[in-house]
Computed example of a mutant assay.
Amino acid sequence: MDMPRNAFKAALKEGRRQIGLWVASNSPDNAEMLATCGYDWLLFDLEHTTSSTADAAALMRAVAPYPGSAIVRPAWNDTVDIKRLLDAGAQTLLVPYVQNAEEARAAVRAVRYPPEGVRGVAGFTRASRFGTVPDYAARASEEICLLVQVETATAVENIEEIAAVDGVDGIFVGPADLAASLGHPGAPSHPDMRKATLDAIARIVATGTPAGILTLDEGVLEAAAEAGALFVAVDVDAAILRRGAAARREAWR
């Protein structure tokens, strides 16, 4: 059986912008419904939700028949969690809270088999289509895409050294945590934050590394896209649901 192709990784290499949606729900039905909406990628979040590795596997299965790519955010830059998500079939990971080059290298080691990394080898997993992909261990890194998040003042200072780490396929700016780090907790749309966010995007782009972002501030989103952000999350499933439900109630109040 063939190695599953990572369309998202291929698109970033080709410089094609990928529009995504952040998914907090752990419902496979909701995930499959969202997969019919035409987004290039859906991110399943395990950091700020109650979702587990088993949930992530179910979500990836739900969207597998559709063209959009699944991205999973582990709860932390943790070798064991990353190993389990890879074995469950994740091909693109967004690793949170990467502060410097050494932490980026740790993430790279976690997604690669020895001798380049420390990923444990298992023969019969969803990743290898249960042992049917020839030479999976030797070829897995071809289709695995590693994205890292810079979301503190320290991380932003280290953008260039993080981008220089071999195996980092993209850098994502997290405005919410960055706002807190810069003294504006809960205010990612503060004017100082807009400048800091767009400066970070521009510096990532200048290194030749694909840049990404999630923000519900339409102005910042558009400016980030104009600055060259390649993987852009334009909304969050929970926010869409709440806005729609509240608007419908207001219409009938």
Rank of each mutant, 00 (worst) to 15 (best):
A64F: 09
R5V: 15
G15E: 12
L198Y: 14
E14C: 06
E142C: 02
G15H: 09
A31R: 00
P188I: 01
A239P: 00
A164L: 08
V220A: 02
S181R: 03
T215E: 06
V121T: 09
D177F: 00
A10T: 13
A137F: 05
H48W: 09
V111F: 09
L178A: 09
P191N: 06
L221A: 03
G174P: 08
A90L: 05
A153K: 06
T207A: 10
R109Q: 14
V165W: 13
R84N: 10
T215R: 02
W22Q: 02
G174W: 07
Q91R: 13
I71T: 09
L214I: 11
A7R: 15
V205W: 13
L34N: 01
R61L: 11
S128L: 06
N158I: 09
L93N: 06
G183D: 01
V205S: 15
T197S: 09
P210G: 12
A62E: 07
A88G: 15
G208E: 12
M33R: 06
A247T: 03
L146F: 10
D81K: 11
V121M: 04
P191L: 05
V232N: 08
E250C: 02
I144L: 11
D29G: 03
T36F: 02
A176K: 00
R248E: 10
T125D: 04
R112H: 15
V156M: 11
A211F: 13
T197C: 06
A200F: 13
L12T: 10
T49N: 01
R248K: 08
L241H: 01
P96L: 10
A202P: 10
P185V: 12
D237W: 00
V98P: 06
P134F: 03
R61T: 06
A64T: 06
T209S: 14
P188Q: 08
A106P: 06
E116F: 15
N30D: 07
T154E: 15
V118A: 07
A140G: 10
A176M: 05
L59D: 00
P67L: 11
Q91K: 08
T154C: 05
C145G: 12
A75Q: 12
A233F: 08
Y113L: 03
I171A: 14
P175M: 11
R105A: 15
V220F: 05
I162V: 15
E161H: 04
P114F: 11
N100P: 10
S69Q: 12
G123Q: 05
E157M: 10
T50A: 08
A223D: 15
